[in-house]
Amino acid sequence: MKNILVFIEHKQAKIKSTSVELLGQAHRLAKELSTDVHALVVGHQVDEIVEQVSAFGVKKVFVCDQENAATYHPSVYADAITDVLQNETPIALLATAGSSMKDVLPKVTARLDWVMISEGIDTAVQDGRIAVKRPMYSGKCTAWAQINTDTPAIFTFRPNVFEAYTGFVAANAEKVAISVSTSLSEQWKCVERIAPTSDKPDLVEASVIVAVGRSIKSAENFAMVDQLASVLEAGVGASRAAVDAGYAPHSMQIGQTGKVVNPKLYFAFGISGAIQHLAGMRTSKVIVAVNTDKEAPIFQYADYGIVGDMFEVVPMLTESCKKLLAE
C-alpha cells in the first residue's frame, strides 16, 4: 500500500513544530485515502527524534543517521531522500517550505522524474489524488494545483497554515535505517555559517509580526519596535520602502520581492499598504494598522486600526501589552 511520507525537521533534539503541523495534515489525508503516515528523518545522532516520532501516529520511520548529514548539504540530503522515495514510492512526500527543503526537493523531483508543488497552504482529495491550494502572484490570488497523472508527488507547505491536529494516536513506529555513500567533494562545501544578527523569531514561522514602513526614519528607531516585539515574542519586519532606504536588511522585507508571511497577528506601523506589501501579508489572521493618514489603503485590510503616529502608539502599545501579559 502506498503511504504518505512526511519529512521531519528537527532542532536541538526536538521535532520542529512545523513538522508536527504537517504530521497532523498527513493524518487527515491518510484517513481520506485509507492509508498510513510514514516519516523520514535525516541528520546525525537523531535517536531522540526517532523516538518522538512514535507519539504522532507514525507507522514506519526511515532514518538516515550519519556524520555528513549533521548539517544540510544538498548532495547528502538529495541522496538520502531519493533512496527512501525510490524504495517506498509513497503517494506523496510532505515537507515544510523552509530553506533546506526548498533547496533540495526540486533536485530530488528532477532525479526521480516526479512532480512537485511548492508552498501549499491547503489540501483536498479529488478523484483519489491530493490537490494543493497555493498562493499565486505572491499572494495576490490563490489557485488549486492538481496532479493529473499517477506520478508520485512532492509537496512543500508554508508554516502555520493547518489547524492543530488533536487526533494523534501513539504508534510504535517501525524503524528502518538507511545510509547513503555520498562522497562530498572539496569543490562544493559550506565554509562558514553566519548567525543571524537578530534574536527575533524567523518571519516565515513567527506567529506575531510587527512591521514598520519608511516613516521609522532610521535603523536606530527600530529599538522602539524591538521592545514591543520582545513583549509579544514577535518577529520584526519592514516594508520595501524601509529596506530600500537602508533602515533594515533585505531579510526583514515583507512583500512581493521579500518574504510572504502568514502570522496570527500582524502589526503594520506606518505602512501605507502598497499592493506589493499587501501581497506579502494579507493572509495574516488578524491585521492591525497604525498610520497617520486615515485614507491609507492599509486600513481597508485591517481588522483593527489607530489613526496616529507610530512613535506615539508603539510605546503605549508596548506598555499596555506588558501590563496585560503580566496579569
Binding site: 523552509g98 530553506s99 569543490q187 562544493w188 562545501k189 559550506c190 565554509v191 562558514e192 555559517r193 553566519i194 548567525a195 543571524p196 544578527t197 537578530s198 527575533k200 523569531p201 524567523d202 518571519l203 516565515v204 514561522e205 536588511p249 533585505h250 531579510s251 526583514m252
Partner: peptide, 12 residues
Amino acid sequence: DIEGGAKEIWQM
C-alpha cells in the same frame, strides 16, 4: 541567505 537573517558561505 537562509532563515531568520542567517547566512552561509559556500565554495562551489
